[in-house]
Design a protein around this nucleic acid. Structure first.
Lengths: 290, 290
DNA sequence: CCTGCTCGTGAACATCGTGTGACGATTTGC
DNA sequence: GCAAATCGTCACACGATGTTCACGAGCAGG
């Protein structure tokens, strides 16, 4: 089983806009030409993808967390149908696109009945493969059921995208829509500094005109509510001339900052906000944090 | 446009249960041979179907409550793309299978990108058409396939899907169809906030046009009936600028809230609201609905 | 210490979203 | 075909929300 990972970590923030087009695709095939061309297209799109050269158990496929799998039945040999059926049964949420050589109507019907979502006949244009994969995935993601609820945590604050709310000690901060979008955006950045322009364009959808203070105003509102609910912590840090950064920081002298991304020196968050000694040092750090 | 009705309204699009293999299919085509053969197959399967000979507006298609539509783009003439795009936009839940004559890769890609779920090239075998329609519809269906007959409970309310009714203390709330679908949808979300757009698209089947107040109106009707039957509880909470959330919340100060997701401390729904002495009593509702 | 900028803050203002009742259209039941 | 129920739309009222403004404090760079 060959494996090649191609993952730009595009960090499609599940933020306000939400629907990212970033997908993770598996390709089970041995046709090197096809694989190469397709991979190139996938790369260009920024989709993560993995190439497999031999059938793998459903468990393994499951562990890859794919959105869809493109498979050439020829690779599977005589057990192709059985394998397909088992896979479709085990992973009903996985999009399966069969892309294989010439076939009869009966074969195609059988494949589709067993659970395949589409069937493309080689030779085919990679663009069509992509379009069909997109179509399959588009149809797949409907379940309001699982709006992947992964609560975001920072200090005492818990952000539940589910509920469009942030909580401290179990009580809601009672954020408005924009306030929530802002805190979600900031928190998802995990300690990185976000420039005003970026925040604005992500929240409002268009570019900020110079002199617009909307971001600042919402930061203030957020800070107010955060401070009222969680007085011993500071969350939103200003980077002069640049933007804002979200990091939970305890104000208790003896405690240590939390939620500091591993890639950053701990001192960074700990030192900082004395706010008096915040001249150059902060500036530098900010700069290379970007 | 021809119309042939075959059965009463089965399977509400949103109806959780009811997913049998009985489908309702539309065929938009003029190729009499193709239509005849396909119809025969559909009849044999016991699928309802309607044949259209000319493009119809999205509203009309919506009113047919189809599961999927098989369409020959040739019938649509030069406005095919535009029509397709509009239809896919308006009816995201409708499966759309293009079945048309020879085409270029670019055309197929375009059609799929615009929202078509599959693309079959004529001439083709009717069995393959059927299989692909099935595949499309299968995807559309609720994945976790919550098999019914599990009464939903919240506060004093009990929702019985198989009876299409909600009960409080043994007596029915006497909900209309839409009212029931709404309370069922909200309750099934288990405390998550549902946006208006989503509610609308799940209940009505097509995308909400801006300014439509239907959801609000039905929420009000539901609230009225709920309040009359269960005055000491509040169920539907408004999220300003977002949508609604269903959580049973007791208005008795001393009692404890129920239906609070395990991840949250019980304090949340119980306590909360005292704190910020809000001006109006019922303002509190909207706001703290959080 | 002075100058030009950026940012925090509070308030005024404009806009948008929602609750509500009523009305006509449509469907359902008899 | 008639009556009742149900559904979708509308207009109005009112408060929540978003935006803008003005002023003062904080920061950077001489």
């Amino acid at each position: 089983m060959t494996e090649s990972i191609t993952a730009p970590d595009v960090a499609a923030p599940s933020g306000p806009g939400g629907a990212s087009t970033a997908l993770r695709i598996g390709v089970l095939d041995r046709d090197s030409g096809f694989i190469q061309v397709l991979s190139k297209r996938l790369d260009r799109l920024g989709w993560e993808h993995r190439v497999l050269a031999s059938p793998v158990p459903a468990d393994t496929v499951a562990s890859m967390r794919l959105s869809a799998l493109v498979v050439d039945l020829a690779v599977l040999g005589p057990q192709a149908w059985e394998w397909l059926e088992r896979l479709c049964g085990a992973l009903p949420d996985l999009g399966i696109v069969v892309c294989t050589g010439p076939s009869t109507v009966a074969q195609r019907v059988r494949g589709l009945r067993l659970g395949a979502d589409d069937w493309i006949t080689k030779p085919c244009h990679p663009e069509e493969v992509i379009a069909r994969v997109q179509s399959v995935v588009r149809r797949r993601r409907r379940p309001s059921g699982r709006t992947e609820s992964k609560p975001l945590m920072a200090g005492e604050v818990e952000i539940l995208s589910d509920r469009f709310q942030a909580f401290v000690g179990g009580s809601s901060l009672d954020l408005t829509r924009r306030e929530f979008e802002l805190i979600e955006l900031l928190a998802a950045a995990e300690g990185r500094v976000l420039e005003r322009e970026e925040i604005y364009s992500r929240l409002w959808g268009y570019t900020m005109v110079r002199g617009d203070r909307s971001v600042d105003v919402f930061v203030r509102k957020l800070r107010q509510k955060l401070e009222k609910a969680s007085p011993r912590w500071r969350y939103i840090h200003t980077h002069f001339g640049i933007g804002y950064r979200f990091t939970a920081q305890s104000l208790d002298v003896d405690s240590v900052a939390v939620d500091v991304p591993a890639s950053l020196p701990a001192a960074w968050d700990a030192g900082d906000q004395g706010k008096l000694a915040r001249t150059h040092e902060d500036r530098e750090l900010t700069a290379d944090a970007l």
